[in-house]
């Protein structure tokens, strides 16, 4: 994660029309990997992640003017990426269907993209994550993989810190019980 000074320097570049493109490149070099994995964990498929990554880049570039430095840059781009990924999932649903109902489809995608010599426990863990409601899964990922604070996740998702803590607790319980059930088979 970057320091506040890096963020300020980046922000200045992004708001200066003569340096905007270079600032954007620097921003993507700095956060691109984390952003890709964040998106990939939501949409699961690589091709989907690539599409969402492209849409996120365009959205970030077009919205730079609206970023006023209220919070860390990373939280801002994570919020954009999360929204784009959710929109991508919504486009895969039918009318009146919730994105939570995509868990089977995402699970199949996970299996299809996983190399045959992949780690079985990792796979089961990912399958367990896909049984969580989407918003809970996203919050869990940010806490577990990105090690973001509840406050930061709250900034990204708009959910209260207490809700996130409760959700994380329920998510860990559910994953544990899934692992217990499927690892012993």
């Amino acid at each position: 994660m970057t320091t506040k000074t890096d963020d300020i320097a980046l922000q200045q570049m992004l708001h200066d029309p003569t340096q905007r493109d270079e600032g954007f490149r620097k921003l993507m070099r700095q956060y691109g990997h984390a952003l890709y994995w964040h998106i990939r964990r939501i949409v699961v498929g690589h091709d989907d992640a690539e599409d969402v990554m492209q849409e996120t880049c365009v959205r970030i570039l077009n919205s730079i003017g609206s970023y006023k430095g209220e919070g860390p840059l990373m939280m801002w781009i994570y919020r954009i990426a999360t929204n784009e990924a959710l929109q991508h999932l919504r486009r895969q649903t039918h009318l009146f269907q919730s994105i939570d109902s995509l868990s089977d489809a995402l699970s199949s995608k996970l299996q299809a993209e996983n190399p045959l010599d992949g780690n079985e426990v990792e796979m089961i863990f990912q399958q367990a994550l896909l049984t969580l409601p989407t918003q809970q899964r996203i919050a869990f990922n940010m806490r577990y993989y990105d090690e973001l604070s509840y406050e930061d996740i709250s900034r990204i998702t708009g959910k209260s810190v207490n809700t996130l803590k409760t959700n994380y607790h329920y998510a860990t319980q559910r994953i544990k019980s899934y692992l217990k059930e499927h690892s012993s088979r």
Binding site: R29, H46, L61, N114, P115, Q126
Partner: peptide, 23 residues
């Protein structure tokens, strides 16, 4: 660890492509 196989080099290329594409 995630059960995916994309390497850092591959991701560098992807990020450059998407960045330049957006620009």
């Amino acid at each position: 660890r995630l059960p995916y196989s994309e390497s850092d080099e591959y991701l560098d290329g992807l990020i450059e492509r998407t960045t330049e594409g957006a620009l």
